[in-house]
Write a protein that binds this DNA or RNA. Sequence first.
RNA 1: GCUGACGUAGCUCAACUGGUAGAGCAGCUGAUUUGUAAUCAGCAGGUUAAGGGUUCGAGUCCCUUCGUCAGCUCCA
Length: 649
Amino acid sequence: MPSEIRVTLPDGSEKRVPAGSTGADLAKAIGPGLAKAAIAVRVNGDVRDLARPLSDGAKVSILTDKDPQALDVLRHSAAHVLATAVRQLFPRAQIGFGPPIEDGFYYDFQVERPFGPEDLEAIEQRMQEVVKADYPFVREEVSRADAKQRFKDDPLKLERIDDLGPDEVISVYTDGPFVDLCRGPHVPSTGRIKHFKLLHGAGAYWRGDERRQMLQRIYGTAWFTKDDLEAYLRRLEEARRRDHRVLGKQLDLFSIQEEVGPGLILWHPKGAMVQFQLRRFIEDAILERGYSLVYTPNVTREELFLRSGHLPLYAANQFPAMGAGEGEAENVRYRVKPMNCPMHILIYASQQRSYRDLPVRLGEIANVYRNERSGTLHGMLRVRGLTMDDAHIFLREDQIEQEIFQLLDIVELVLGKTFGLAYRLDLATRPEKKLGSDATWDVAERALEQALKHRGVTYRLDQGGGAFYGPKIDIKFNDAIGREWQGATIQLDFEQPERFKLEYTGEDNKPHRPVMIHRAIYGTLERFVGFLIEHFAGAFPLWLAPEQVRVLPISDAQAPAARALHERLRAAGIRSHLDERNETLNYRIRDGELQKVPYMAVVGQREADAGSAAVRGRGEGKKQVVLPVAEFVAKLQEEVRTRSLTPLV
RNA sequence: GCUGACGUAGCUCAACUGGUAGAGCAGCUGAUUUGUAAUCAGCAGGUUAAGGGUUCGAGUCCCUUCGUCAGCUCCA
């Protein structure tokens, strides 16, 4: 065995260290500062403990708190500290998994009694003690038999051991009194975990399977610095401030009321105006692109959904059937529609179609109802009454790619150009519960994949994420605080045309079967508006703002001039509101700001005399622009027409 | 659906271990006529989510139902 080994550092230089040197030794050899800052070491791409020996010829880099991967290590170790504390306080707790996650970590426990808020406080206290004790994380490799012996009282761990492949190295980590089956890596000792906080407890199914027992999960967050931790907690705070459920109430956009039912939105006038503008925008956009608008009923005979294949595959998400009432045949039952496709299909099938007619594009902004499980509902973002900007496109197989290009163009127009959102594409493939043959799925999946490839866009693969009738391209976007949402979706369907025996007459004068695309651009108006509320923190761009201008006379003496301005704005198509309440100007300005009105036009004696308006932009404070009314109107119209995201006045 | 926490005036929140439901804002009335983020005063507003139970007495304790929130699972 050679007495020295050589390793390559990130800058390409080589370093000789004694054989058997560890990552920690290497860090020390490079410099004392690095040794102190070192968290873990990356060896040929794998992150490992500092205490593990390096191998000859390896490419290594020492990870410090600057490295995002080091954060995962820290959080993973924090999860162990959490488990250490829980085991001390609840010796009979069985341990499940405890991985790092985005922004933090969690650990699952099987306990006799769920954790309450007081428990979390006590656990966090105990964690501080574990940190203070500065137990080193010690790694050992053990045999399967040894591992089973060590975890003989932890059935969850035993199950995990049984799942490990025969060739997998089984390692255990010890920090002070706590031993865990774990792949690692970890920080050198518990003392490195200084800035953390437990956030909340919740139930979580063992191994994510709802048929299995529910464990108690504790979530926490951990950071390298106090500042990072505080910044993160502020970010959570900010998220709450932007919460569409809170803003929806404050801005009087919508409500959800127990008397109506969960997941059912009452759109108040202001929220309805936002929806109305979005509808106009998308309807104009698709009419320009060869779509036809259709309207279809909210209930249909149950047999239709049997034929489409929704029943029984989708039945769990549909509201139960209703009878037709007295005097009609007892066996005629109706269903509220969860999707529009069967009815659009019947419109397609209502006449003979020529290959020259294709693609036939039928669009409908329609309400559909899905019986979502109660626990999944969330404000406007997950509801039971959905307003989809739906469309079904019937086309020839050779038209798929071009059509998908057009759809991606519309997506870019709406999400990218109009709202400035960065979005991502997912290719979602066949799920477990599906209709149709694998051969058909092969064709459909390949068609979408080809379209994406030829378009030259990057996308992720979402294995098993498809709809039951076909694969889809899902468009996901992030909101202002980094959360991800799915809006638009483009779904390819060979199955329903088959079930409904759809046809068109080809050039060869023979019948052919068309393909179908289901698509939505906003997804649903509920989710999209909910998202926009959070994205803009309620401060909608002018074209969407329910109230665009608020006109404020300074005192009664200017009321006629203010009213004239208000009327003029209205005549110019601007949504103006006249606030001549008997309140101070300060009070009314504050109210306008809190209501996030884009512009307030103050009319004092000077403005009344000059035919001008003193315009205050939303959030601009005392900064005001005095300009002639005609110019103000023109600028507003321009800002609306261009759907500008930034104010023009 | 599952686990846990929770539900008090239109909104935000008080009410010690069971002992007369209270405040700010919003609303209404009046005064005030305001130059860029809260003028002053008065008034009104509640079967404490609903139903049942324990108790001399329940917002508070117990049960059921409904709903909300955080997750899990599922999804636009």
